[in-house]
């Protein structure tokens, strides 16, 4: 594929055709905040924390999805772009619980001087978590409606379509049909929604319990890559252990067999290894 050359913040950058502005920024060691952008998913274009200025475009453009054109002139750090990103971060943090979003995002908020306290009002914080089974928890007070879980459950990965965005505007929310409990829905408990959730709104039960209890400690965890013990597809698994006990099982998103996805057995069916009658 041909290479394209563009200008980012005054510097010349060459990237393969089809790259996004974000790809181009990262290719030269830069970065921008992202939330709804999932590496294994099509850009949802909704969180708007990655906006940049492109000369000739009326509005700001989302860097995670806008594909680079030859000769494009991009400014990532103008007052206008920073202002917009800052306000959007403030709006997000004022409306949902972002405590469990990864550290990089809090660093971005600090970097931009975001002050969510400026915006008080309607929030989904404080909504009770939905704990319906032993496998995973839906803690929707943390949901920023990034669409990643819906896309992963839907056509892009799992094709189960157990969840959707329902309602509209600020009332829009992730829901099963008629908001029935998960066991009554189409959910197959693959947990592929958990794998893509950037905010901790969807979490394995063990991890969520540990986080609630304050015992989840990523610094004391080890990750061992292996292959699932069930069928013969060969899904890679990352076994997360803390003090010799398995606390989570995931699949690497750069593994071309799974793209980070698993089935219920792979993600949750490992408890036999710690079963008592061994």
């Amino acid at each position: 594929m041909a290479d394209l050359t563009l200008t980012i913040d005054g510097g010349t950058v060459t990237v393969p055709e089809g790259s996004t502005i974000l790809d181009a920024v990262r290719s030269v060691g830069g970065d921008l905040p992202t939330l709804c952008h999932g590496p294994t998913l099509e850009p949802a274009n909704v969180c708007r924390v990655c906006m940049v200025e492109v000369e000739g475009a009326g509005a700001l453009v989302p860097s995670c999805s806008r594909v680079v054109d030859e000769g494009m002139v991009v400014h990532t750090d103008t007052d206008r772009a920073r202002h917009s990103r800052t306000v959007v971060m403030e709006l997000l943090a004022s409306s949902a619980d972002l405590e469990r979003v990864d550290d990089r995002f809090s660093a971005w908020m600090e970097d931009h001087g975001a002050d969510p306290a400026r915006f008080t009002g309607a929030t989904i914080e404080g909504r009770p978590a939905k704990v319906h089974d032993d496998l995973y928890v839906r803690d929707y007070a943390r949901c920023i409606l990034c669409y990643r879980c819906v896309d992963a459950c839907g056509e892009q990965h799992q094709n189960t379509f157990a969840i959707t965005v329902a309602g509209r505007g600020f009332d829009a929310h992730i829901s099963t049909e008629f908001d029935v409990a998960l066991p009554d829905s189409a959910c197959v408990y693959c947990g592929n929604c958990i794998a893509v959730c950037p905010t901790g709104a969807l979490e394995g039960k063990i991890a969520w319990d540990m986080k609630e209890a304050g015992t989840w400690d990523i610094d004391r965890q080890e990750v061992t890559r292996t292959v699932c013990s069930y069928c013969g597809v060969g899904c890679n698994l990352d076994i997360h252990t803390q003090e010799g006990a398995i606390v989570d099982v995931t699949s690497p998103e750069d593994h071309d067999v799974t793209l980070g996805n698993l089935c219920i057995k792979g993600r949750f069916g490992w408890s036999f290894v710690v079963s008592v009658d061994e």
Binding site: V87, L91, F119, R168, G169, F170
Partner: peptide
């Protein structure tokens, strides 16, 4: 705020704010 589709944050939250 009633008519915002709810997709993008500046509109979904911004119209409410």
């Amino acid at each position: 705020s009633d008519e915002s589709c709810g997709q993008c944050v500046p509109c979904r939250v911004g119209t409410v704010r």
